[in-house]
Design a protein around this nucleic acid. Sequence first.
DNA 1: AATAAATGAATGAACATTCATTTATTTTAC
DNA 2: GTAAAATAAATGAATGTTCATTCATTTATT
Lengths: 191, 191
Amino acid sequence: MIRNKRNAILKSVLKLVNRQGFYHLNMKSIAQEAGVAAGTIYLYFKGKEDLINALYAMTAEEFNQAILEAYEEGRPLQANFFAMLDAAVMFYLKNPDHFSFVEQYTYAPFLFKENQDMNFSLLLPIYKMMAQGKALRLIKPLDESVLLALIHGSLNTIIKLHLARKTNLRKESTRKEFYNAVWDAVTVTKK
Amino acid sequence: MIRNKRNAILKSVLKLVNRQGFYHLNMKSIAQEAGVAAGTIYLYFKGKEDLINALYAMTAEEFNQAILEAYEEGRPLQANFFAMLDAAVMFYLKNPDHFSFVEQYTYAPFLFKENQDMNFSLLLPIYKMMAQGKALRLIKPLDESVLLALIHGSLNTIIKLHLARKTNLRKESTRKEFYNAVWDAVTVTKK
DNA sequence: AATAAATGAATGAACATTCATTTATTTTAC
DNA sequence: GTAAAATAAATGAATGTTCATTCATTTATT
């Protein structure tokens, strides 16, 4: 049962960060939301920073799993690419708190260098696939970072826009349109 | 003379936000950096929030100007597209503090709804051009937000990566590679 | 009875803002 | 031209608030 309270605290941070933002996050409201006393948090975490970092580890883990599950060995590259992008999108539609938290975490003071990289490496499985695609001359021989910008950057922004109700990623047609455009950006073209 | 101190204060915020992040920004260090007393800030700004918002207005204005200057009437769409993207990139390479500030501002508590949109509308001139391109059947009839994600999202990320020294946008070849990829994403393809 | 878990009031540090006082600049008077 | 007076600009110590963290005490479990 020891996990119950720890988990309630983590969940409570996730909810509060999305609701009021990182700036208004304080230990008392975390405790309140989790239904424990302020001091209890310190039984499970060394302090605020430790708490935040633990939560990041959790969200990253869950996201990674979702992406990896979408990959199927021996399927055409394009199919896996679309499936994994879709898994990423659907994960965040189902867990908007996670997205909001990861976004804000990037600019939190708790962030250490190692984690900065981790944030980008959330889509690591996709980049590995891209390397194969380059060898097959299907994917452009792009700079790693350019690839990352095209995929990670546009993915992040489209989700941000969905959450701001500027577009609707629940419509399959919108998602497809987006995946196709990213695909066109990274694949070898014959115009 | 009255602009001098006001400007020194604004510049000092820009520098500090990039150096230590929004979370560690406090009025005393702003004053120190600007070479004035803490109370002096309140002669020029209503408070911290007002100061931050004023700075955002300033940076947005400067960025906008840089982009618009790159546009030349009566030039092919692709040329203007590349020129404006390049202007955006070069502006941020020259003013990394601006980029860092705008990025972090998005998640600051000072942000009002109107400004949220403004942040995306930094590239407004480019989107207007895209509308023309759609009419010419040169640009895909993409959802506005998808377009925004592809351009704004990937641009932001590539700059972030450059500032993190993961890539080098000072090399023209890297920039070109990036612009071409974005171009491929948004234009009608014949594969 | 002993140990572990949880509580929440108390502590102290950080920090935005205020305002009485000082310093600089401008205006007036001769 | 200069001294005095008036106004404006600037200062930074003091104030009050917020908030993370601690720890003596209480409650639950073994």
